[in-house]
Amino acid sequence: MENNIWLQMKDYFNNNMDSFLIAIKEHLEISLIALMIAIIIGIPCGYVCVKFKRLEKQIVSLFQVLRVIPSLAVLLLLIPVMGTGVKSAIIALVLLAMPPVLMNTVVGLKEVPDFMVESAYGIGMTEKQVLWKVQFPLAMPLIFTGIKTAMIEIIASATLAAKIGAGGLGGIIFTGLGLNRTDLLLIGGITVGLLTIATSLLLELINRTMMKYKYVR
């Protein structure tokens, strides 16, 4: 039996290498687009939250509530509105990724010590300069952690997007479930698992090279 599955998997790779690679490409594409959108919306939102304290509670709790909704429910709720396909999948993934990016931006910006901001103003920096040269660089480690969490969640959940016809590695798993083919289940499942672990290692590596100063002992 074990041997059989092994042979089946080998067979699959021999015959369907192209579609396998396309599935991986689609998966990564969806994930990266969703992450980009989440970053583009999330970081400015975080800045707004810190700048206008009154809005903070509303914005944060809004995204918190949206996050609690099961992602499958979000995906299917979007079908009547946006139809099936990549667009609805990306919106659902963006909703999923927003809270970590947003929360970490807020916390990161808040944790910049007041005296540093004050002394930056004191040496004559404009508001823009303080933002780009003092606040964001100092908040970067936490923001990056948020992006990392978001990316892992997106890649893991992008599997579900196949259910509404957005393609990706989930397609292989759903085909395996439908045909009762263990080899397809294993290929899909292991690939997504490896992809998630590889991404988290890669992001950790980027984190270490970008923020070298943190790890100097």
């Binding site: 959940s157 599997t159 579900l160 798993i173 395996g176 263990t182 899909g188 499942g189 997504v192 672990i197």
Partner: peptide, 12 residues
Amino acid sequence: SIPSLALFALLI
């Protein structure tokens, strides 16, 4: 960090 659908699939 392994997606739930994949884990379900692996346990079947």
